[in-house]
Computed example of a mutant assay.
Amino acid sequence: MERKHTGIAWDWPNPFIFETRVEPQHIDDFQHTNNVVYLTWMAKTAWEHSKALGLDFANYARLNRGMVVRRHELEYLAASREGETVLVGTWITGNDGRLRLRRRFQMVNGNTGETLLRGLTDFVCINVETGRATRMPPEFVSTYTITATVEGDA
C-alpha cells in the first residue's frame, strides 16, 4: 500500500513507503506499540520494496539466491498507540555487488509527522538451497541499487 506522503520530514529523499496501522494486538502493557512490532514492520517494508522492484520469492527461487538478515539496529525515539497510522520509509544505502546489502528505515507517525524510529538492516546473499553465503547474481546487483547516499554504508 504505497502512496505519496507529503509534508513528512524524511531523512533522505524519495523513500519507498509502506503504510500500516497500529492494531490492538500490537499494544503492550505500557499501552504503546511493542518493540518487536517495529522490527516486523521493517521486515515487511523491505520485502514489499523488494517485490515492487520485481524480486519476489519466486524470483529468489528461480535464481536460487536470496537476501537474508545478518544484523538489525533500531533506535526507538517515540511511542505509537492503537489506531495511529505508521509510515515506514526505506532506502537502500549500501550494496557491495558481492554479498552485502544495507537498508535504512525511518518510521513516522502519519497522524503527527513525528519520527518514531530509525533503523538499519544488513543483509547477506545466500544460496537458497544450502543457506550458505554466496555472491549476488547480476539481477540483485542491478535491481538493489542505492537509493540514498549515507557515508559509510556503500
Rank of each mutant, 00 (worst) to 15 (best):
V124T: 14
W91F: 09
P137D: 13
L120M: 15
G89E: 06
M107I: 06
L101T: 13
I92G: 04
I126N: 09
P138D: 11
T121L: 08
F105H: 06
V124L: 13
D96V: 06
L99Y: 13
T121I: 13
N109H: 00
V124Q: 09
M107S: 03
R102D: 06
E129P: 12
C125A: 10
T112C: 08
E139W: 06
D96Y: 04
D96F: 05
L101G: 08
T112E: 06
V88N: 01
R100I: 15
T93I: 12
R132P: 02
G94E: 02
D96L: 05
V88Y: 02
T134F: 12
T93K: 03
V108A: 00
R100V: 15
G119L: 03
L120K: 15
T130P: 13
V108Y: 01
G97I: 10
T121E: 07
T130R: 09
R98W: 04
D122A: 12
T115M: 07
M107D: 02
S142H: 09
G110W: 04
T90F: 01
A133G: 15
R132A: 00
L101R: 10
G113F: 01
V128E: 14
N95D: 04
T112K: 00
R118Y: 02
R98G: 10
R132Y: 07
E129L: 15
L101S: 08
A133N: 12
V124A: 11
V108D: 00
T93R: 02
R98S: 09
T143W: 04
L99K: 13
V141Q: 08
F140A: 10
G119W: 02
N111L: 12
R103T: 02
S142F: 03
M136L: 09
E129A: 15
N109T: 08
P137C: 14
M107H: 03
V108N: 01
P138K: 08
V141Y: 02
D122N: 14
G97Q: 00
T93N: 04
L120V: 14
G131S: 10
R98A: 11
G119V: 08
G131D: 06
L116N: 07
A133I: 12
F123H: 08
T143K: 07
T121A: 14
T93G: 05
V141N: 01
R103K: 09
D96E: 04
L116T: 01
R100M: 15
R118C: 05
R98H: 10
V128R: 13
P137N: 11
Q106I: 01
M136S: 00
R102T: 13
M136I: 11
G113A: 09
V128G: 07
A133M: 14
G97Y: 03
T93A: 03
T143I: 05
D96A: 01
F123Q: 10
W91P: 02
D122Q: 13
W91C: 05
N109F: 07
G113N: 06
